[in-house]
Design a binder for these strands. Structure first.
Lengths: 348, 348
DNA sequence: TTCTACATAGAAAGCGCTTGCTGTACGGCT
DNA sequence: AGCCGTACAGCAAGCGCTTTCTATGTAGAA
């Protein structure tokens, strides 16, 4: 039925061992022999059996990339960058690795299950992207899993995610706190004193860090925050829309709305427009991430650019061992404030 | 070092065969025995060796999803939907399958290499999304590969891609031609007679089909097309921006611009604005796909909604054998015209 | 009681590949 | 000429699991 190494060996008149070595290229084989083998491979249309070789060699060429939401460009951009460096087909690297993107949907269970699945496949490396859950139980479970993975020789890299101490995982963490602070300071600098904040889901580290940055800026400028000024919601457009209406209801005198990310900000813009408010004349809006579409919003979104592609690429290189891990296994990746049309001086 | 089935068997005082059967649950095992085994599994923190079981069972639980660009929501949405039905962790289905998303970057070589890699892994199913290349040589190579996959028992589904005859692959094809025609007819109905068209890369089937639909509409209404009215470019924002400037240069009297997709349309909008033209008062704009951000453009984009999530979900179900394939192995998935603010009557 | 049937559990033969070790032949060295 | 180092090629032992076939114990049938 299916062609095996032995078939190729028979046709090339060599031993299976030789065929294996030709295919793996890590052992001297005479040029003439190699040619004969390759010819046989070609003629028989032979395709290596992945599981079998993974079993025999005790390694696999799978690299896992965990993302919260594959439909969200935030993750898509990082995943694409990781993959380009993993050296999948066409990548820079030599060996052909299968980069597999796993969609966790942001739920703890799926995250764990995928990690187990990757462990089961004896993945060569795993890259986890995006913020983590705050839940201590789940964090411990993930940490334990990560430790097991690194102990088994799988390289684990966290990209845009807080460090996981004592797991052997390398972290490239986004400076969400710093970015959040800078963004709010920009708005304060413009004269805003009443700022609404649309935060993400409470249980995510990203949410908390950005919010902390925001509050640090407020505190630094002696602005006392009204609890009504913060609303939590999902990281999507609709949540931004609804949260904005809620903010407006709670305090119609707000002059700025800071959103958890660009997608949410877009929803906020829509809500403001639908409420008859102009941006930035009546209300300024700010996002986070600087996704590609942010510049196309009208007015273009003031936001914090996160170097998603660069961070992803670096994570990929580190995962492949082609770049040294940062000292201490932790690197802080900073964002850059992008001031655009959606923020301006408050009226009056 | 690593825990194996035998270790579990020893601890549970049963044979490896029994442990395997408990884990796979396809053979009667006494409840008391099962419990003992599961306890041992738990205590030893045993994780099945994927490659080994794939080798022994001659099947794997990998499902491949090929996308052109993982950072593009067009693909992300489909991939996410496929995955949700594949029954990866948390999915509806029973068995735990690893859905792997492979980023081909739209290049023929990577597409083929990924298919080989999946073949090598003995993937349970493969879903190919997005348009195909027009290149006959490559199409033949892909067709041959698909045939080999289906022959080996891998279910192959094409999602939003033209059928591949005689390969055993099931196709859910988007009606790009019909959508393109409907869209242009809408503009013609508004009174437009001079319509620019920003097409995608020439070598993609999607590009050709949408363009053909556009031309069919023009022809049906007796509008003779000026060759200067069509510009080709990549499927991205910048291409849309540049192509629009080029169109304007070639013929400043155009009253509408039809873009290959929404992303391109956004670039077109930016170019028009930067040229001092108002949308839709001076020039109408139309996109294709109806990606989530299209509604947030200002004005909101007139476009053709493709049921990406539905099609992806269906592809996933078909790939898992949980839904019957369409008769003839081919289904046409229609788009829906979404008329929004970016299209209006031409001036004058 | 003896025989048959059923429900489980185990033994063992692979699945297709990798790799350490063992030949073997040839060229160059003394 | 005799020896050794080098360059290949092959042998064979697994890698960790699945699964067929067989063995065993028990219960019900005769």
């Amino acid at each position: 039925m299916t062609v095996t190494l032995a078939d190729v060996a028979a046709r090339a008149q060599v031993s299976p061992a030789t065929v294996s070595r030709v295919l793996n290229g890590n052992y001297p084989v005479a040029a003439s022999t190699r040619e004969r083998v390759l010819k046989a491979v070609d003629e028989l249309d032979y395709v290596l059996n992945g599981p079998a070789s993974a079993l025999a060699a005790a390694t696999s060429d799978l690299v896992g990339i965990l993302v919260n939401d594959i439909a969200d460009p935030f993750f898509g951009i990082m995943a694409g960058a990781v993959q380009s460096e993993i050296g999948g087909p066409g990548g820079r690297a030599g060996g052909e690795r299968l980069a597999v993107v796993c969609n966790t949907g942001g739920t703890p269970e799926r995250e764990l299950t995928y990690l187990t699945l990757l462990q089961r496949q004896r993945a060569a490396a795993v890259v986890l992207t995006g913020g983590a859950m705050e839940d201590a139980v789940h964090q411990a479970a993930v940490a334990a899993k990560l430790r097991k993975l690194t102990e088994a020789g799988t390289r684990v890299v966290l990209c845009g995610r807080p460090p996981a101490p004592d797991t052997g995982a390398i972290a490239l963490t986004f400076d969400n706190r710093g970015g959040g602070r800078e963004l709010t300071e920009h708005l304060i600098g413009l004269g805003h004193r009443r700022l609404g904040y649309i935060a993400g889901p409470e249980e995510r580290t990203t949410t908390r860090h950005r919010l902390e940055g925001h509050r640090t800026a407020l505190a630094a400028h002696g602005i006392e925050e009204d609890p009504r000024w913060t609303v939590h919601g999902r990281y999507d457009r609709q949540a931004g829309y609804e949260a904005t209406l809620e903010l407006l209801r709670r305090d119609p005198t707000l002059t700025a709305v800071v959103a958890a990310n660009d997608t949410v900000a877009l929803g906020a813009c829509a809500a403001l427009r639908d409420s008859g408010l102009r941006i930035p004349d009546d209300v300024s809006v700010a996002g986070f991430d600087d996704l590609p579409f942010s510049i196309d919003a009208v007015p273009a979104l003031t936001t914090v650019r996160l170097p998603l592609a660069e961070a992803g690429a670096r994570a990929g290189r580190v995962a492949m061992g082609r770049e040294d891990a940062p000292v201490g296994g932790i690197a802080m990746v900073r964002g850059e404030l992008m001031v655009r049309g959606s923020s301006g001086r408050p009226r009056g």
